[in-house]
Design a binder for these strands. Structure first.
Lengths: 190, 190
DNA sequence: CCTCTGACTAAAAATCAAATTTGGTCACTT
DNA sequence: AAGTGACCAAATTTGATTTTTAGTCAGAGG
């Protein structure tokens, strides 16, 4: 096997999705970029959506791996939650594909992109939930419903980072950390 | 003055906005409904937006009056917050104009409507803030920043009522009340 | 006078057919 | 068997044409 065509296609598609978004990325362009016949793409992926899905799936793994890497077992649960949220949210502003997806969703409202963003949100909540469940198990926090807690954690974080800016000066990460600690963590501390 | 033409126009426009939304309401239709020449509308309102604004402004006043009416001085601050939020959110599902605006924003994305919804949100937050400030003054709660508190209260409430339903069974008002109390109120209690 | 009107206009939006683009296939090459 | 690109039906874009609409204003009516 001289060249991994599947890899070539994934790399080319990732580049194109990042630069032009989902809608403006054509299968012809991906084929050209990957130096591959268009038909070859369809031997690895059943359609454009599935190709997109695989790439987003990798993106999510990358996100969670980076978040996971920030965890410091010597720090408190509350501080680690901060770290993880901060890292996850950083993706919004640094990762090119993520930026493009958020922009495409807002400006064009491509349905496939909305689906993916919802999917990403679900994955993040599910990851947070696993962390919260583990912390509950170990008695670090008290807990009613970890699903609701993770849901609210993410929603609150996103609100403070993006919605807040419509009417106010942006909040620093430190301010956000304090707010989350003040409102959401007090209820959880045992 | 036999008939209050301004009133006729406002009533007709309110009906039309409620039935057809902002975009599909034409000034001709409003004039017809109000039994008034089209030119007459422009003697009271400089343009369609301003007419709309006045109607939404009335809607907001109505909302806040209804919320205010649910306040029971003999109940706790926390319970009253619940009551007020519940009442405000009830508007989303009962008031015909509100329903139409939310639907138009989601489906067509009319910019003038988005502006109005943002405006409504701001008014609600400002109202909540005034209540929180009063409660802080009286020593019922402790408080860092009432602006952030009201912002988070509303955002959390809306998330629980609408976003939550994408993946879960809707929450009952009682459940929502408990969640808000558990997460947001503990930090506030003195 | 002064209020009110609806025919009028310029600009925006909807319509529709033709032209172009695009996702996906498959007969053929290597 | 793996890979390709010409090909096709379906979707999208274009642009010229028609229709609708916000806003105006000359004049009717009281």
């Amino acid at each position: 096997m001289a060249v991994d065509r599947r890899r070539l296609i994934l790399d080319a598609a990732t580049k194109s999705f990042s630069m032009f978004g989902f809608k403006a990325t054509t299968m012809d362009r991906v084929a050209k970029l990957a130096n591959v016949g268009k038909g070859t793409i369809y031997t690895f992926f059943t359609n454009k959506e599935e190709l997109f899905e695989e790439i987003v799936s990798t993106l999510v793994k990358e996100m969670i791996a980076q978040a996971e890497a920030t965890i410091r077992p010597d720090k408190s649960f509350s501080e680690n939650v901060q770290q993880v949220l901060a890292k996850l949210l950083e993706f919004r502003t640094t990762h090119v594909l993520m930026i493009k997806l958020l922009q495409e969703e807002k400006e064009i409202g491509t349905p496939a992109v909305l689906d993916m963003l919802n999917h990403i949100e679900d994955e993040i909540i599910s990851y947070l939930k696993s962390k919260i469940d583990a912390a509950t198990q170990k008695g670090y926090i008290i807990q009613n419903d970890s699903e609701i807690t993770s849901f609210l954690l993410l929603k609150t974080y996103v609100s403070l980072v993006s919605d807040w800016e419509r009417n106010h000066e942006p909040l620093s990460s430190e301010q956000i950390a304090n707010i989350i600690k003040f409102y959401l963590m007090k209820g959880l501390s045992s």
